[in-house]
């Protein structure tokens, strides 16, 4: 691996370590981080929209390849 990737990896790990330390400092009991109503809505409807998009894209690709006779 190149030096850059080692650097980025060690950067990432120290970031995680700091984050871990921070959560430890802020909350003496078991820390928690609850997703709010807005975030929850994004997750739920995002997943639903993603599935819809995937279905439409798959059908569109199929239609185009079918028209060109390039399905297989």
């Amino acid at each position: 691996m190149k030096r850059r990737s080692w650097l980025s990896l060690s950067g990432l790990s120290s970031l995680l370590a700091i984050a871990a330390h921070a959560t430890e400092q802020e909350a003496p009991s078991t820390p928690s981080w609850e997703v709010g109503a807005e975030g929850f809505r994004w997750i739920v409807y995002g997943g639903l929209f993603g599935l819809l998009l995937a279905t439409v894209v798959l059908l569109a690709i199929w239609f185009r390849e079918w028209q060109k006779g390039k399905l297989w």
């Binding site: 190149k2 990737s5 980025s8 990896l9 790990s13 995680l16 871990a20 959560t23 820390p31």
Partner: peptide
Amino acid sequence: QEFHWALLIFITGGLVTAATVVMIIQ
């Protein structure tokens, strides 16, 4: 105690995944 264990495994898993991603991208 349980939280620390979980966090340790979480960080290890994240690092291994990140390393794999980096290796493949390179």
